[in-house]
């Protein structure tokens, strides 16, 4: 929204904070970033049984310019790492990253030359969801924790 630039310093906005954070968390649009097996569980979380649409997240934007949330679902190989970074930088602020699964969090079972040991070596991560793969309910729990984190954010530039 770009609201942060328009607020002069030294002003405390509580109700404005609450409204803006509520609107941001209620319509977080994820980016389609399923890399490996965790993508299947992410699709299952978006499907009928564990609905992500009730959180406002049924719209998976393929373009990073239109997405708010990058759920890195799966292992990131050496060749994919610059691509992940480029897509993260193409996303507009405010943006968040969830590292889904063991491979995106720490490299998982693949402690070798081919896999980046955790996507937080390339992009800043807000929430780590462990599991191999995490069940859809675990991913939704991670998303709800992200919503709680979003709710605590402040528009005031500190």
């Amino acid at each position: 929204m770009g609201l942060e630039e328009h607020i002069p310093r030294g002003i405390l906005l509580t109700t404005m904070d609450k409204v803006v954070n509520w609107s941001r968390k209620s319509s977080t649009w994820p980016m389609t970033f399923g890399l490996a097996c965790c993508a299947i569980e992410m699709m299952a979380a978006a499907a009928g049984r564990f609905d992500l649409a009730r959180f406002g997240m049924e719209v998976y934007r393929a373009s990073p310019r239109q997405a708010d949330l990058m759920i890195v679902a799966g292992r990131v190989s050496n060749k994919m790492a610059p691509v992940v970074r480029m897509l993260y930088e193409q996303m507009a602020d405010p943006k968040w990253v969830i590292a889904m699964g063991a491979c995106a969090s720490t490299g998982g079972v693949f402690n070798n030359y081919a896999v980046i040991q955790g996507v937080d070596k390339i992009v800043p991560v807000d929430i780590y969801v462990p599991g191999c793969p995490p069940r859809p309910e675990q991913l939704i729990e991670g998303i709800m924790k992200l919503h709680a984190k979003m709710q605590k954010e402040s528009l005031r530039k500190s």
């Binding site: 050496n78 490299g107 402690n111 070798n112 030359y113 081919a114 896999v115 040991q117």
Partner: peptide
Amino acid sequence: DWEGHPLRKDFPLTRE
């Protein structure tokens, strides 16, 4: 630009 040849026996086995 990778250096080394991973499947040689003297290449380290684990990354971390």
